[in-house]
Structure formats: structure tokens, C-alpha cells
Design a protein around this nucleic acid. Structure first.
Lengths: 159, 159
DNA sequence: ATCGAATGGTTGAACATTGATTCATTAACG
DNA sequence: CGTTAATGAATCAATGTTCAACCATTCGAT
């Protein structure tokens, strides 16, 4: 199990941790997302709604940073959410480059209704670890994320 | 920072760990993959070559399991690797449903040449953690991955 | 005030990924 | 045997994602 690469201890240790980290994230994300996508939302759409719900209106650049997605992608995601009436765009009057994205009532209702199930699924996915272990995992992961990630660590990317 | 969801302690703890896990994996994977993709390989192509290098020839179904990717995707990935002469397909004579994928000499040389840089980048990405912490992270992640993931935990998915 | 750099957003091409369908082959079972 | 089920792979449409090019807007020098 783990890595088959021949190298010194430090390399094998890092590779092993790396593989397990990626696999765990994939596994947990897949499990959680199953419950979102069934309801007609992609993971990124869900993440966007959730960010808007918990952080309030955001411009598209901010949304992209929170979700770790490219600008072009955010344009499409917001397009689709807007098409479905979950969200509205509005040009910022002060600085007309910005487009602020607002949750509609329908969007707020939708994401609010989805959250309990989402939370329950996350809790369930992490139930393999004790509370103390979950905290330890969070601590370790936070230090890893600091390296490259956009600093805004507000809201879940949801892949 | 972390989660903005209002809920009981267990929920907040799980959500927080979840977010950080996903972000850390994204962040580390992005960093590592930057060094692979610059050289003309997608993450999945790299993962496939690496699996073949360390595990020997595999059929496409096995490859899909190792990489956590769909069958249709594997067909395309192998197509592209074959086009570039990194890999050859061969029908299994015993059971003609199987197609075994072999590394060519060129493919072996290519992945072998890439590995040291890959390993160095993984080591670097995980250097925020001490050896002991890396082991702890691996231990926690392994227990999370067990929930849903395909059991074959041989080789890195690389997203 | 103006010109150039930087920033936010959009667009379009390229591509990876999935999921459903289909086909060939093998296995199982009567 | 022969039919049916199961398995591995290929194919195709649909979609999410990224990246580069581009436009509009603002900001900063001079």
C-alpha cells in the first residue's frame, strides 16, 4: 500500500502522505457531492450559493477566490445560476468594473433547504474520526493550504 | 475563519475539518501538478504512467480503479498516451475482453525522468509539516478514504 | 488631462471527465 | 450445447474547467 517509489525516508513519507491526502479528499468530496448533485446543482454551483449565503453578496472575482476557480468558470457558473433564478448580477455603480452577485429569495431558500442535508453528510463522512482527530486533521491541513492557496479561506470550495 | 454555518459543535467541527481538507488537497495538488503539466502531461496521464511504472502492465479497468477515473476517461487517456508513443495496447489472448496497457521504452524513460522532480515537489509541498505530522496526516486521511473509495489504494490519483 | 498599466469580466477554443449506450467476449446455468 | 447474464472496452453527447485573448473601466504616473 501507499507508494512504490524507491527513495529516502523523507521522500517516501511525503509521497505517502500526499497520496492519502488526495485520495481522502476525493473520497469525502465524492460522498458529499452525491447529495448535492442529485438535486440539480453542480458542486461549484452549490459552493457559490453557500458562499453567498454565509458571506453575503460578492463580486465575481471574490467568488472565484473562495471557490478556487478561474474567472472564466465563475462567469459560466453565475450565468447558469442566474438562468435558474437563484442569483442576480448587478454592476457596481461606484466602480463599474465590478459585478456584484446577489442571492435571490429563491436562491436563498434553495441553499438554506439544502444545507442541513449537506452538513449531515459532511458529519457522516468525517465520523470515521473522533472530534479530537477532526481538529487535528484541520490543523494539519490548514498549514498545508497556506503554501499556495488564495488567502481567503472563508468558504468551502467543494471541488 | 473556517465555517460560517451555525450549528452544534460536532457539525462545526466536521465542516471545518472538511473545508480544510478539501482546500489543502486542492492547494497541494495544484502545486505539484504545475510541474507535471508544464511538461505536456495532464495529471491523469502522469498518474497512469506512474502506475504503469511502479505496478507493471495493467488492463484499463485496473488503471481506472487506481486512478479513480471512469472507464470512458481511461479509454481517452490511453488513446492520447498511445498517440504520443508512451504506451501500447495489447489484447489479452487468454481473455480477449481485456486490453493490457504496456509502457514503451520512451514512456518509461519519460516518466522515470519526471519522477525526481515530482517527488521533490511533493516533498516541498509537504515541508510545512514535520515528519511526524506527515505520518499523522497520512494516518487520519487513510481512515477517511476507507469509507467510499475503491479499495485499491496502490497509486496516486493526482486528481 | 492624458497615456499606459492594472483590474474585472466576458468570450471562445481546447480539453478532461462523466454517464449512457453499444459491442464483443466470456461465464453461468439450465 | 445454447441462451442469458456479466464483464471490459469503445463511442458519443453533454458539461465543467482552464487558458488566452479581448473589452471596458479605473488608477497612476507625468
Amino acid at each position: 500500500m501507499g507508494t512504490h517509489y524507491k527513495g529516502d525516508d523523507g521522500e517516501v513519507r511525503a509521497l505517502d502522505a500526499y497520496i492519502k491526502l488526495i485520495r481522502a479528499a476525493d473520497s469525502v468530496a465524492a460522498r458529499v457531492q452525491r447529495h448535492e448533485s442529485v438535486l440539480g446543482l453542480t458542486a461549484t454551483q452549490f459552493g457559490a450559493l453557500e458562499a453567498l449565503l454565509h458571506l453575503g453578496p460578492l463580486c465575481q472575482r471574490e467568488l472565484g477566490e473562495k471557490l478556487l476557480k478561474s474567472g472564466g468558470n465563475i462567469t459560466l457558473v453565475v450565468d447558469n445560476l442566474e438562468k435558474h433564478g437563484m442569483v442576480v448580477r448587478q454592476r457596481d455603480q461606484a466602480d463599474r468594473r465590478f459585478v456584484t452577485v446577489y442571492l435571490t429569495d429563491a436562491g436563498r431558500a434553495r441553499i438554506a433547504a439544502l444545507m442541513p442535508g449537506h452538513v449531515a453528510e459532511v458529519v457522516r463522512a468525517l465520523s470515521a474520526l473522533s472530534p479530537r482527530e477532526q481538529e487535528e486533521l484541520g490543523r494539519l491541513c490548514r498549514r498545508l493550504g497556506l503554501g499556495t492557496a488564495a488567502e481567503g479561506q472563508g468558504t468551502p470550495p467543494c471541488r
